[in-house]
Nucleic acid binder design. Sequence first.
DNA 1: GTTAGCAGCGTTTTT
DNA 2: CGCTGCTAAC
Length: 786
Amino acid sequence: MTRFDEHDAFEEAALPLSRRAMAARPAPYLDGLNPAQRAAVEALDGPVLMLAGAGTGKTRALTTRIAHLLHTGRARPNEILAVTFTNKAAREMKERVGRLLGQTVEGLPWMGTFHSVCVRLLRRHAELAGLKSNFTILDTDDQIRLMKQVIQAANMDEKRWPARQLAGLIDNWKNRAWTPEKVPSAEAPAFNNRGTELYAAYQDRLRTLNACDFGDLLLHCVTIFQAHPDVLEQYQRWFRYILVDEYQDTNVAQYLWLRLLAQAHRNICCVGDDDQSIYGWRGAEVGNILRFEKDFPGAQVIRLEQNYRSTAHILAAASGVISANQGRLGKTLWTEAEGGEKVRLIGHWDGEEEARWIGEEIEALERGTRGGDPVSANGMAILVRAAHQMRAFEDRFLTIGLPYRVIGGPRFYERQEIRDAMAYFRLAVSPEDDLAFERVVNLPKRGLGDKAQADIQRAARDLGLPLLEGARALVAQGGIGGKGGAALRVFCAAVDRWHAVAATPGHDHIQLAETILDESGYTAMWQADKTPEAPGRLENLKELVKALEAFDTLQGFLEHVALIMENETEEAAEKVTIMTLHAAKGLEFPVIFLPGWEDGLFPSQRAMDESGQKGVEEERRLAYVGITRAERLCTISFAANRRVYGQWQSQLPSRFIDELPEAHVEVLTPPGLYGGGYGAARPAVAGVETRAAAANVYNSPGWQRMQSRAASRPVHAPQESRHVVIDLEAVSVFDTGDRVFHKKFGYGEVAGIEGDKLRIRFDKAGEKHVLAGYVVPAEHADDVPF
DNA sequence: GTTAGCAGCGTTTTT
DNA sequence: CGCTGCTAAC
């Protein structure tokens, strides 16, 4: 993994370049680019805006441009700065640039996310932001806990003024590059009139802790650039060429950051697609891309419109939807590809049926029995609007034994056990890390409850020392008695030992990590735990230790983790992907399923309530992103009924369904339509006020269109039953009454055997039918299949 | 100080 | 419905 820190570009003086030396050589990498791409690659100097529609080879253009900059001798690697939003995008860019350049060039350009680049800069100039260069980066969890403390300190009612809300508020302010002093007075009423005051207090706390949150990384950089022209100038000279991916997603802080760095030489190339701007809720300003030409007069605007990804039907459907948006820069995607299937549309009775139907479609596609060549599971994805929609699919797929992978779920480094373990590591590396201390003093239980912890806090504050020292002092003077006191003494001594090892150059950090988890009793705690999650957690801890191998020190590892919060294990197995629409941006799959197209869910009620028409437009862009992920087959579906908070609600088909151009859509008749259709079995809807509109369900345009389309088509023959591999051996293993373990449902007891399936009464999940191959005897809970 | 049991709440999307 | 966080008993 190439990390930023591995090559320190700054120290290398800008040697005189043999600028034109290489220019005469042929540039084979330019072959095969279309005219627009080629123009984008060759327009090296001055501001360039590359408007790149979905699937138009934007990454190729971007990476080739970098190669061209180097090849023509315009810039040396460390003079190029390329920023992306996600680690995934950064990784891909590094790989592709690396491949293009081969071994010919020494070093790689600065490529990374906004955040990783900012960390690098901030470490060098931390003192200008009132920090030490070894500052810690807090994640959301730490952030919230800190906010809680701030709210408490201000004597506010945590119930009425929740920390999450304050976090959201401050985050928004930081996205706009507002320091506490710069928050406009119009914002004064925020958070019970005390928003700015709490913001300032929070920033103070962060500084005391020598810590930063995510927003600070950018905010501090911008403030430093603004307050110290000499520092800014230095970087303006270094980064002679700047490239930005996904420019439509930049927020104000990022925009200012870029403008500051680029304003001198103006060699900035921004790539984006206003139709794919889907992060407005987190401060992204589509306006940034819309006014690029004003910010950088004389900018060249290059449109990439030839699509290499999708069929014409898919493109037409996507264009139809997005054309309902106002104020677009406007692009017309086209393709040379001919033929292909229309986008399919299908309605279901409820969410479970939708999941069942999609599961069957996937299996049919895998076998190749649904027309055309078989499609591998890796080539299929289900894209949902909100994470909670994933559950229905997971449940269904586990039941039928269809392997799947969830992207962007609770990520590895966000899991409780991993964060706990890392808090221990943090404490070993820097014993003054109070947040880490708080997290683990009483984990496992050491008999240190609220009172003891409050005493520690007070002692530390009185002495002006970190919590660990406060605790030590308190123990020394016998301030904490009995079991808790003894345990705390042991705890402090252990941290000292670990810290001593951690501070020794050349120590074995993997050994240290194991020692810490062992001596702290943390591993033992999970071993003693009998819940179904415990084995998985122990497994994760093992993985965590394994992940350390890629690093030289615990410190290096912790830093890496703070920024790369994703599980990078990429298994080769054939699996269907389930993820959110947001996570899908930039990806492509031959087959895409888009379930849950219902008003309120998609477009989401909240987006509409909070942002009105603007919100709907962003949701529409999300729909556009979803459809354009598909290469060959795209299936949109909705359900008439859905469980929300355990309550059944009847749903209206999404307004976006009305916007799908009829000529490019094939309406499938849902299996549930046989006996009289949806209307016949209409559910009783609780008389909730907001759902009074339910009376109009069957009058809605979307519904009527759906019905008329369905009526004009012959009813499909029922799906033939799926082919199921019967694992006879597995079946024979179990008897009624056996204790078994299932990855998702936990422990249970076999209540009956029906062919290849078991009826299992789960302790927690209730009774379920599950393929025998997907459970193991309870005593082997450690090795559950997938 | 710890644990069990209940009340109340919530679900957009993420670096 | 399932989770978090608080209260009341061990």
